[in-house]
Design a protein around this nucleic acid. Structure first.
Lengths: 157, 157
DNA sequence: TATTGTTATACTCTATAACTATA
DNA sequence: TATAGTTATAGAGTATAACAATA
């Protein structure tokens, strides 16, 4: 009996398992870290996305970058606004567009969270060699781009 | 001014960013792969967990391993039962306990999804060297155990 | 009393469809 | 007509609190 699995790399089965667990466990892990700050993973991803641009991000850009549909973003932003973490500003060049910006409170919260996460991560990274750390960065970055490209293609289709 | 960030490894800032993106993007990626099978990431994680034990898993074990509280599991299992993917069986040794098992349909669906994921992943892994693939497995496995241990400690506290 | 599990409730995230306002 | 964004609605996941049945 010809089994298609025979053609796979020997590491593939193992890594599919690891990456499935990683997706789930890292979500629970981040969720748990965010608990004390009273924000959720989608809100965290959104805050990070907003922080990348100094002059504000439109709802549709946010929607694209966070891979969430517009009505979903509307809800997330509404909650972030009500907590005083972001604010809406009209775009002078197009009156249909609303720009979203971090408030000072939002910036402060985001950097507190990031700092905490860095400290936790640093402890783990100390258990790796320099070479391992650098190769991890390289490989995960490529893997991320791989998934992001795939997701964009799905969207187009 | 003494800045705590100065004490971090140079790779830490970069990896915190990468791991945040990874958590979010891998969730969207898996979610997108699961779409055609009409199941959600928490349902997928649950099915995998059930599949690991031949003789069924209790709700409380599921709740522990999936890191979700019992009422959450009740809901997820309810939907999986209604789709015919899992079934409940009373535990003969303790009448309080319900054992959850995969149905034949559930096993089949799970292996279809896994096969699809392996094929996608395999294509990416071909772009890595053997050494890179093996070191990725080792590093991610250790990172996972790190997070899992941390989560268990949080729960205890 | 302690454990196993469900139900009730409330909130967030999610997508689709319908809508408003602007270009 | 097309684009930017919101509202309405429904379903899934999440946690807390209250409850029933069994140990």
């Amino acid at each position: 009996m010809q089994n298609i699995q025979n053609t796979l790399l020997t590491e593939t089965v193992q890594l599919e398992e690891i990456l499935s667990r990683l997706s789930w466990v890292s979500k629970r892990y981040i969720s748990c870290q965010l608990n004390q700050f009273q924000i959720t993973p989608p809100q965290f991803a959104t805050l990070r996305c907003i922080a990348q641009k100094q002059n504000g991000v439109s709802m549709s850009d946010l929607s694209d970058h966070c891979q969430a549909v517009m009505p979903t973003m509307t809800g997330i932003i509404k909650r972030l606004v009500s907590r005083g973490l972001v604010e809406r500003k009209p775009d002078p060049s197009d009156r249909r567009t609303t720009l979203i910006l971090l408030t000072e409170t939002g910036q402060q919260l985001l950097s507190e969270i990031t700092q905490l996460r860095r400290e936790y991560l640093d402890q783990y990274l100390l258990t790796l060699t320099l070479q391992e750390r650098q190769s991890t960065i390289e490989i995960l970055e490529r893997y991320l781009q791989n998934m992001e490209t795939w997701l964009l293609n799905q969207e187009a289709a």
